[in-house]
Design a protein around this nucleic acid. Structure first.
Lengths: 281, 281
DNA sequence: CCAGTTATGTTCGCTACCGTCCAGACAGAT
DNA sequence: ATCTGTCTGGACGGTAGCGAACATAACTGG
């Protein structure tokens, strides 16, 4: 029984904008449909558009010496792709690949930079979002070092569930393996374990979340950490009118591609689903 | 024969400032001496001061469920501690612990925020620096996942060498183990291997770099990546007069502590020592 | 110079994951 | 109905790192 929450298909970062400005911003965006496995940015290449997923979601991955990739970040309707423009750098640091097909809003880089200048509240919310991203990167490093595949897989499934707006989604073991930086067999084994515990069921790439609370218990504490940091940082109700600062000249010289705790939470209500429309920033 | 480069003991980020402004900035700082193993910030706590190391250097670490720490970032005279203030967040995301004792410049948080508003060039250079940090976090995640202790140790020694302004420094195996997130035994083994190859020599915490080029060959490509990203991002000669933007309200509510390829480079001259005074931003 | 502390070296069995290969199972196309 | 490609499951030996314990060695302060 898939329980699909009623929600507004809008990016939640944009909910921080005053209503009229938000409407204007959205109409200035182009509505696009992202296709599964589509690559939106490559590391070292120029960013042409920023993306605000609404029902789609995106993985940020870092390629590594022929041994495959490692996912280091998730972007769903709680985030955006292209945040480095906030720092005046229009070169993508990472690869961005579409994990969940669906609609997104996108905007031309130059227009986005003008919006940043014009809309203080946008800048504020994106600065906080960037802070969250850096926290998540550090969390990912720790997770990769200390946690076993089973826990990491559970975390991954939860993060996907949060952004998929559905209890089912399509991801093969092979794909999962490249996200987590392990062998496909490792995923098969870990996924079997989760299936035996009746937390998920899957077949030929179709995954269904059966027991979300159980999955949260099976995941490492990194999931809870990420969640806590997001809500703590983004949901602070402060006035979004800032003091004047400056915007730097854009750094956009394309470069080569050569670049290379929480105590275990007891109950799921400690982690309100960030996909629920319940918590506007 | 330790070769100590002649250099100006000033933080290199500040070299991006026009001379007079830089002098004023430095006189507005407090000169402090950092002691080994001193903890400057704890995750989740308020940032009181920002630090610009000149001859000291600092590790950014993330504590993890009782299994110890993991270092996710280095701060020497090429960087600063407290960069999250640039995003309007005065809560430290990470723990900062002094690795190399020595002098640093520090400034009160509020004064620093005023400086950010007043000095466009400062904001610009720090935005780029933050971009570099995020890249390094992603690199660290990948490194932790894919590379063996020997390579990671070599990388760590190189990064320390870059910031220590000396061929010798003091770090015990125990301490190193907590930085790399491995057992002390693992460090002992890896360090013995490096010593047998006559790349380093050490005794009771005193480490001396004997063969820097050899160490670079022994390290994973992450070292080269980090280096390349730093120089690419920071050394672009652009005009540092920006367009007007805004500064957000400060987010400073303290929170609990519960939070939890480059082709292998052939020659060392591809990696000019970033500690050399040679490359002002 | 002895005793206590700190730093390093070594060993044991154990586990998670590796690289590789093969086998079955299912879905859609011909 | 067979074929073909995709997806999943299982098995092989090999290795890096774990946890725990113990053994030196060097420095430190009486």
């Amino acid at each position: 029984m898939p329980v699909i929450e009623p929600y507004l298909p809008v990016n939640r970062l944009l909910l921080a904008l005053p209503h009229k400005i938000r409407q204007r911003f959205i109409t200035d965006c182009e509505a696009v449909d992202l296709a599964f496995a589509e690559i939106l940015t490559e590391p070292g290449e120029r960013i042409d558009h920023v993306y605000f997923p609404t029902e789609s979601f995106i993985a940020l991955t870092k390629p590594i010496d022929k041994r495959g990739n490692l996912e280091v970040g998730f972007i769903g309707d709680e985030g955006m792709l292209g945040i480095s423009l906030l720092l005046g750098v229009s070169i993508s640091p990472l690869q961005a690949v579409v994990l969940g097909e669906g609609p997104a809003l996108r905007m031309d880089t130059n227009q986005f930079r003008r919006k940043l200048t014009d809309i203080p509240a946008l800048q504020t919310v994106l600065q906080r979002y960037l802070y969250v991203i850096t926290e998540q990167l550090a969390q990912t490093a720790v997770c990769c070092r200390f946690h076993v595949v089973d826990e990491r897989l559970a975390r991954w499934l939860l993060m996907t569930h949060d952004r998929a707006h559905s209890d089912t989604f399509h991801i093969t073991h092979e794909f999962l393996a490249s996200m987590l930086g392990v062998r496909r067999v490792g995923i098969t084994k870990a996924a079997s374990a989760l299936q035996n515990r009746e937390l998920i069921c899957y077949s030929r790439g179709n995954i269904r979340i059966l027991d979300r609370a159980g999955l949260e218990a099976a995941a490492c504490e990194c999931y809870a950490s990420d969640h806590a940091i997001y809500t703590r940082t983004m949901e602070v109700k402060t006035d979004l009118r800032p003091m004047p600062l400056h915007q730097p000249p854009l750094l956009d010289q394309p470069i080569g591609n050569e670049q290379c705790d929480t105590a275990k939470r007891k109950k799921s209500e400690q982690f309100p689903d960030i996909t629920a429309g319940s918590s506007p920033l």
